[in-house]
């Protein structure tokens, strides 16, 4: 199969800039020189592929994937589901989506997290899945709690789930965070506010999805993910659109 076209340029005015003064950790970790724009080659257009042999059946079920026999994670049971699409609105099938999060009390299972909220012995806090042929994915988990962090003296992260997505090319590689509809901390978070526009921030807020809720069992939120789109033809000499 011949190489298809380049991926669309990433809109750097839509993404957070590297240097965001109010998110203090970015200050010493942000490149100060301009990124060098690179015409994509085979190195950028290709990327790692994953299959069902890479993951296990329970990997997308955070309520049970670390729980003891007959146990389950504590917290508000939720389904997080949606589609991975590209900017052309085409589904991205068979792509790896990884998730990690704090438990319902806002505590991460990580040797560097010392927050006083307790570890849930039945909750690991990570999951992974492959999108199906329509780009659809879902996780079952508990809604993570808000937690304090050292930025300003009194900073609290809104509830969020970290998501890592691959796509088909290394250019599409993306890590983001999914927030939840109605969270009063959203407007106060310096990490959310690294995104320049309100429209961009809103695009990271999962919607309560009553149609996907399982009555008397699990509430649902919908979160679609969009990866970079791609030209249909590779124009080697002149980069014309299509």
């Amino acid at each position: 199969m011949p190489l298809k076209g380049e991926f669309y340029q990433r809109d750097r005015e839509w993404h957070p800039p590297a240097y965001t003064h109010d998110y203090k950790t970015s200050v010493a970790r942000s490149p100060q020189k301009s990124l060098i724009s690179l015409d994509q080659t085979v190195s950028e257009i290709t990327g790692p592929r994953f299959g069902h042999s890479d993951i296990a059946a329970l990997d997308n079920d955070l309520i049970y994937n670390y729980a003891g026999e007959g146990q389950s994670a504590i917290g508000e049971r939720i389904i997080l589901h949606g589609r991975v699409l590209d900017e052309n609105a085409r589904p991205v099938p068979n792509t790896l989506v990884e998730a990690w999060q704090a438990n319902a009390g806002g505590r991460y299972r990580h040797k560097k997290d010392t927050y006083l909220a307790p570890i849930d012995p039945n909750f690991g806090g990570c999951g992974r899945t492959l999108t199906d042929e329509n780009g659809y994915y879902f996780f079952r988990t508990v809604k993570p709690g808000a937690y304090p962090w050292r930025n300003w003296v009194n900073s609290w992260r809104p509830a969020h789930i970290h998501l890592s997505i691959f796509g088909t090319g290394f250019t599409q590689r993306l890590i983001t965070q999914c927030y939840f509809e109605g969270d009063p901390l959203l407007g106060k978070c310096p990490i959310v506010k690294t995104i320049p526009t309100q429209e961009g921030r809103d695009s990271l807020v999962a919607a309560l999805d009553m149609n996907a809720t399982i009555p008397l069992d699990t509430i649902a939120y919908k979160f679609d993910i969009v990866l970079r789109g791609r030209r249909s033809t590779l124009f080697e000499n002149r980069l014309e659109g299509n």
């Binding site: 669309y8 990433r10 809109d11 839509w14 993404h15 957070p16 998110y23 950790t25 970015s26 699409l85 590209d86 900017e87 052309n88 609105a89 990690w100 991460y108 990580h110 560097k112 997290d113 970290h162 890592s164 997505i165 993306l174 890590i175 983001t176 965070q177 990490i191 959310v192 690294t194 995104i195 961009g200 921030r201 695009s203 990271l204 993910i225 969009v226 990866l227 970079r228 789109g229």
Partner: peptide, 13 residues
């Protein structure tokens, strides 16, 4: 066209 999902930091964990 859809807009790409905005990036967020991977965070400490």
């Amino acid at each position: 066209y859809l807009k790409e999902t905005p990036s967020q930091t991977a965070g400490p964990y």
